[in-house]
């Protein structure tokens, strides 16, 4: 095991797959010699050269369109959209073209492509560079969606996404880029559609994603001192969704709390709450509670952004209050 930062793990995941498969190409804005604005792809240009690691103009439709056309004709492209907010400028490509073409052609076309994007808040960038947009992708049939929370998962899920025969969006929460963690040595490939139980507790289940996972774990530690023993499940993959792991834990604890960075309406937690209500209502000891950002654009100033996003304190207070 080596200790890598989240951003180093991203570069390691792409490098591992580019080394293994000469059909893997990587394109995006500033991804070449610059190594990406978040420095998550440093070294790839030097290692694989300007043909396989290629800078694009600021043309998000062209980036995703090119990746799609290449994927349907034999390459396995990885395309970077610098900030997930910019997906709005190429959402036709993502939601209408990439997502639907396999179905509409009844399987004539395969689209083995990955769209990586820096997602989420906590960096004081304001409402157009801080959104948590994984729910947009989750709502479109035909897209797989993952959001890792650790360096090991960043590498392993990215590698799995690159090997997957279908389009996968990888949401990298940008406040996680600097965190460090153990990453398995040698080839590391994870599995899409699997959640991870980060902490097993007896009293309640907290389900979280990406940057909300470390917050949920910190909250669980505080809750323990208050006499509440919480499970923390890292969803990791929204599509496919590992409902078995979530349902199994909720059946045991009887309580479900979701921690979502997204604005309130139609967050991924609402879908999980709906599934839990449908399939293990009798096992619940109380209402399902969603902890989210309010239904607002994310503000820029530190005090405002911190207030808006779910915090460790808010998770602790909500769980404590909910279970009273």
């Amino acid at each position: 095991m080596a200790e890598l930062s989240f951003r180093e793990a991203i570069a390691a995941g792409i490098a591992q797959e580019m080394e293994r498969d000469p059909l893997v190409y990587f394109i995006g804005e500033d991804v070449g010699a610059a190594g990406g604005v978040f420095k998550a792809t440093v070294g790839l240009f030097e290692r694989f050269g300007p043909e396989r690691v290629r800078d694009t103009p600021i043309s998000e439709q062209a980036i995703i369109g090119a990746a799609m056309g290449a994927a349907m004709t034999g390459l396995r492209p990885v395309a970077e959209i610098m900030f997930s907010d910019f997906l709005a400028t190429c959402w036709d490509m993502v939601a209408n073209q990439v997502a639907k073409t396999r179905y509409m052609t009844d399987g004539q076309v395969s689209l083995p492509l990955v769209i990586r994007t820096a997602n989420g808040g906590g960096t004081r960038f304001g409402a157009q560079h801080s959104q948590s947009l994984e729910n947009w992708a989750m709502a479109v049939p035909g897209l797989k969606v993952v959001a890792p929370s650790t360096p090991a998962d960043a590498k392993g899920l990215l590698a799995a996404a690159i090997r997957d025969p279908d389009p996968v969006l990888v949401f990298e929460q940008k406040s996680l880029y600097g965190i460090k963690g153990e990453v398995p040595d040698g080839e590391h490939v994870d599995q899409l559609g699997t959640a991870a139980v980060r902490r097993t507790g007896q009293d309640c289940t907290i389900v979280a994603l990406a940057a909300m996972v470390p917050k949920a774990l910190a909250a669980a530690q505080q809750l323990e001192s208050l006499g509440i023993d919480a499970s923390v499940i890292d969803v990791r993959s929204l599509v496919p969704l590992d409902t078995r792991t979530i349902l199994g834990d909720v059946r045991r604890t009887g309580w479900l709390f979701t921690v979502e960075e997204n604005p309130r309406l139609c967050g991924w937690g609402a879908e999980i709450a709906s599934i839990v209500a449908d399939e293990c209502f009798d096992d619940l000891d109380g209402p399902i509670v969603r902890i989210t950002t309010p239904h607002i654009p994310l503000p820029a100033a530190d005090v405002l952004e911190d207030m808006a996003m779910p915090s460790v304190d808010r998770i602790v207070e909500t769980v404590k209050g909910g279970m009273r």
Partner: peptide
């Protein structure tokens, strides 16, 4: 939509 996609197929042919 298909202009960038066609460019992508051409990129693949080039690669």
């Amino acid at each position: 939509a298909h202009l960038p996609i066609a460019a992508g197929a051409a990129w693949s042919a080039q690669a």
